[in-house]
């Protein structure tokens, strides 16, 4: 798992709201540092790291939510949605690994159900990945990052 980036510029004596403007853009940038990898569905580690960064952004938005109005809550909902779909992709990757390991150690008469679940999981992983790509492209087309940065700065 990728380590969290160190937050630069936090000021303990300034207000909570002022520090929201310092911390949130850095956590948002951390999410976007993984964007270069998302067109390749086989970049499992990077997709997983993006999920972790999205989760950190979500928690950080929850901490600072008191500083903002409903537009911020709406965007938090989008972040949670992204985290969920990336989580589903990761869950499938873990299940595929478990089934692959189990197949290696099993007798052939036990493999029928394992193969069925393997295909099913692979198929749902593929459709989750496609769904994630569509969501991400929609966010890019609607200036999600810029909108969130503008709200954070208010």
């Amino acid at each position: 798992m990728a380590k969290p980036q160190k937050i630069i510029g936090l000021n303990p004596k300034q207000s909570f709201r002022q520090n929201a403007r310092t911390v949130l853009p850095q956590r948002l940038e951390e999410v976007y540092s993984w964007e270069q990898y998302i067109n390749d569905p086989e970049r499992r580690d990077e997709l997983h790291n993006m999920r972790i960064s999205v989760k950190r952004l979500r928690y950080t938005m929850e901490f600072f939510a008191v500083n903002y109005d409903s537009r911020f809550s709406d965007i938090l909902g989008v972040v949670i949605d992204l985290q969920d779909i990336l989580g589903d992709i990761h869950d499938s990757d873990v299940i595929l690994d478990i089934l692959t390991d189990y197949k290696k150690s099993s007798q052939s008469d036990e493999l029928l159900g394992v193969d069925t679940l393997f295909s099913r999981t692979q198929s749902s992983r593929n459709s989750d990945y496609q769904e994630f790509k569509i969501k991400w492209e929609h966010l890019s087309a609607t200036d999600f990052k810029q909108k969130l940065l503008e709200i954070i700065a208010t």
């Binding site: 303990p12 909570f16 709201r17």
Partner: peptide
């Protein structure tokens, strides 16, 4: 598996004009 996460809790005393350190302690 699709297990969803518990919602964040509300932390009393955390407010926009409160100082950062006080809020950090309350949240933690």
């Amino acid at each position: 598996m699709g297990v969803k996460m518990s919602a964040a809790i509300e932390i009393k005393g955390v407010a926009p004009n409160e100082n950062m350190e006080t809020c950090a302690r309350l949240i933690i």
